[in-house]
Every structure is written in structure tokens, then in C-alpha cells.
Simulated assay, not measured.
Amino acid sequence: MKKILIVMLLTSISLVAKVNVVTTYAYLGEIVKEVGGSHVKVNVLANPKFDPHFIVPKPSLITKLRKAELLVLNGGQLEIGWLPPLLRGAQNRAINVGSKGFVDVSGVIHMIDKPTNVSRSGGDVHPDGNPHFALDPHNMIPIAKLITKKLVMLDSANQTAYEKNLQSFITKWSSFLDQYDAKMATCKDTKVVQYHELFNYFLKRYEFTLVGNIEPLPGISPSSKDALKTINLMKDNNVKIILQDVYHEKKTAQFIADETGAKVQLIPHDVGSVEDTDTLEHFYNIIEERLCR
């Protein structure tokens, strides 16, 4: 009788066991929840209110990685400045580069802005291209497909559930995109300036006209001379919108806006980075509201 009870207990534990998934950013966590459903437990490493290039490697993050069975990262070297030391500290072979529990979603993305020459003279350049592809909502479906494939490899017993969840997400997201694209079409050809090369994928998708960046080079803070150059550029091109992210300083953009009569719009870069962006839908809807209404 005792043996029977032990077997029943172990069986019940295996039935409710969840795949322990760690994602580098919040938007990836939302996709994992969509396709993983009740079969996954998700932890996110980066606080979406801070610069995604620089995350403080806290011991608590190492603990999360040490327990992970699947690591989902953005890739494109966006995490290159902070993830490697965390992985070394975690010493978890299951999620090392090249392992079954490691997935870099940039592999299914057509990367833009690939530099022809990589050197410090060009600022903080990403050799693989611009890694901020999460700003294009059309990239969510290929990412979801890749994550589902990885979950099935790790947890084949729940393959049917994962694939069913994926199909539900594709149906829901395709409907969302149809409506979203129609709303964004009203903003086509709008001229904008952005602080950092953060919104390029979004601007390209919806055919905005990017006149310039406040940063003289990626990752290089603008000087007074740079600000004056941007002011003249905006006046010459009649630009009335400045895209400001949540983690760079905001005084420069506001100064330029005061001098040009433009409006500074605070645009989120990830789920949870500003108020009312707690889901993927809300994240993109806030961007649309701040740029097209």
C-alpha cells in the first residue's frame, strides 16, 4: 500500500510539472505564456523600465538561470553586455549556447541596419544588425513558432497542447494585425525624429519617414552642437514628433521640442515599460495611440 501511494504521488507530481522557462525580456515571456499555457513557468530577467542593453547581473538572476530548462533570448547581441556573465555564474549546461534548452529568436528575423564596417568610431554598433525587432508586431508569429518548436523538443508529452496553443495565438494575432495595420495606415509618411535607433523596425513596417536621430551615433550622448543640428534638421523638414524612449535622458528631446514646436512622445520598447502595456496587445496599442491620434 505504501508503494502504491508513493507511485501515485510521483505520478501526480509529473502530471503537474511545468517547464521552467527564463526569458531575457518581458515580450518574450508573454509569447512563452501564450504557447506554453499551463505547462510552463516563466521568469523574466530584464526589468522593462530600464535600458535593455545593460542589466545589473544580480545573484537572483543567476538563481533563475540555474533552475531553468529553457532560456529564450532576443539575440542580435542585445544581451551581449550582461547575459554571458550570468550564464557563467549559473553553470547550467541545459541552457548553454547550442544546447537543447537555448533559443535565440533573432534566428527567425530578417535583421535590418547591418553595418558594413564595425568599429568604435561608429558608436555602439551591433554587428548582426539592429536587435530591436520586437517593435514590429509582425515578428511575434515567427518567434512564437520557434518557441513552440523548442517546447515540444523539451516536453514532447505535451506536444498537442503546445501546438494547439500556437494555432490559437496565430489566429488571434493575425486578427489583431489586420486591425492594427489598418489603423497604422493612417499615419503613413509621418515625419519623425527619434532619440536612439530603437524604433527602426516599427517605422519601416508602417512607412514613417525617419528624418534623424538625436544621438549623433548609437550609444553616444548628444552634445549641445548635436542638439542644434537636430533642431535645424527638424525645422528644415517640418518634423513635429520626437520619439523618446523610457531609459534615455529626456532633457535634450524636450529642449529640441521647445525650440521647434514639436511634441515629445514617450514610446515603450517592451511590455511593461510604460503604464498600461501589460500585454502584447496593450503594448502595441499604446504605440499606435501615441503616434496616430
Results as ranks from 00 to 15, higher is better:
E215K: 01
V32M: 07
R120N: 15
D178H: 05
T277W: 09
K18N: 13
Y195C: 06
S99V: 09
H53T: 08
S60C: 11
E288W: 05
I95F: 06
V56L: 14
F133M: 10
A157P: 02
M184A: 05
A185Y: 00
D236T: 04
K172M: 07
Q159M: 10
R290I: 01
S60F: 07
S273Q: 08
K64C: 05
F102D: 12
V246F: 00
L243H: 03
R88C: 08
G81F: 12
G212M: 02
A46D: 01
A182G: 04
H269D: 15
N74P: 09
K225V: 03
D178C: 00
V7L: 15
A257G: 12
N92H: 10
S106Q: 07
I267V: 13
L166I: 05
E69V: 11
L78F: 01
R66H: 15
H53F: 03
D278E: 15
K251V: 01
K183H: 05
N232E: 06
V22N: 01
K114A: 07
Q167Y: 04
W173T: 03
Y25D: 11
S175T: 07
E163M: 14
K33V: 03
C292T: 02
D270V: 09
D276E: 15
K100E: 15
P218R: 01
P131D: 05
L280M: 15
L154Q: 08
P115D: 08
Q244D: 05
L10I: 12
K18R: 15
E275L: 10
K41D: 12
R88I: 11
T116C: 13
T23N: 03
E30K: 13
I287G: 13
T230E: 00
I4R: 15
V211K: 06
